[in-house]
């Protein structure tokens, strides 16, 4: 089966004043694959996600989605193209109910303009992921794990083609983690969604991802299958420290 490029990061540079957060980063994400994006804190992973999703505009380089140049598009436009993202520091609409939180995702992504239809679709997704709380609970009363599940529901309700997940596993209990992984696996299998997974929890990355890209200080230092990355000297050096190389 021919593999199609879904997302192309092409020599992207992002600076904040004198700080170069992304230094000529290039890689491709194939349609239907789960790509892990790993690296130390501050290596530019979230910055890259923000560039892809329109929150930042790169100083140089291009981002192409299904061949179309999406660099510099606004976040709401990116969403309407079928690219969904979650936030590293989990975001909800605190004063809205669980159901309303998901409905926002259903309506404004362009899925349904009808409130009732959106309500139904939202209920469906909440049911599908087995959301543990009443749909009328205000989001501000949820705990972290529930908020993360909620953001997953919100981003999934619009049937996105590309998912950018920014540290969605971090901070979860083993049970919560297992649940999210289960949902991701199912959705990926059923809908052939392409996923870019920014994560620190290595065993999840190794287990889920088809390929991994490693960033360090804004540069890509490695790219390949999980087994290759696990043995890559540069990756070991960046993550585990130089001493381990001598062993």
């Amino acid at each position: 089966m021919k593999s199609i490029t879904e997302l192309e990061i092409n020599s992207v540079v992002k600076k904040f004043g004198g700080l170069i957060a992304l230094n000529n980063v290039s890689f491709e994400v194939k349609s239907g694959e789960i790509l892990g994006l790993i690296g130390p804190n501050g290596s530019g992973k979230t910055t890259l996600i923000n560039c892809i999703s329109g929150f930042y505009r790169p100083e140089a380089g291009k981002i192409l989605y299904k061949g179309r140049n999406i660099t510099g598009l606004k976040p709401y436009q990116i969403c309407q193209l079928g690219i969904g993202r979650t936030f590293q520091i989990v975001e909800t609409f605190p004063a809205l109910t669980v159901l309303e939180n998901v409905m926002v995702g259903a309506i404004f992504s362009g899925l349904s303009s009808n409130l009732n239809e959106a309500k139904l679709k939202s209920r469906e997704i909440l049911e599908y992921i087995n959301f543990p709380r009443d749909e009328n609970v205000l989001a501000k009363y949820l705990n972290l794990g529930e908020m993360k599940l909620l953001s997953l529901a919100r981003v999934l309700v619009s049937n996105p083609k590309l998912l950018l997940l920014d540290e969605i596993i971090a901070g979860l209990t083993p049970i919560e983690e297992a649940k999210i992984i289960e949902v991701l696996k199912e959705i990926h299998k059923k809908q052939k969604i392409t996923i870019v997974l920014v994560e620190h929890v290595m065993r999840v990355v190794m287990k889920l991802c088809n390929r991994i890209v490693v960033l360090h200080e804004g540069k890509k230092i490695a790219e390949g299958k999980p087994e290759e990355i696990a043995q890559n000297e540069k990756v070991i050096e960046a993550y585990l420290g130089e001493e381990y190389l001598k062993i």
């Binding site: 969403c79 004063a95 309506i107």
Partner: peptide, 26 residues
């Protein structure tokens, strides 16, 4: 309270970042 437009307002008030990422044009 009963329209799509009102939901957009509430979303923007709750979290503009999240609203934008959900497709709302601020």
């Amino acid at each position: 309270n009963k329209t799509k437009i009102g939901l957009a307002f509430k979303a923007l008030r709750g979290s503009e970042l999240l609203a934008m990422a959900s497709g709302v044009n601020p």
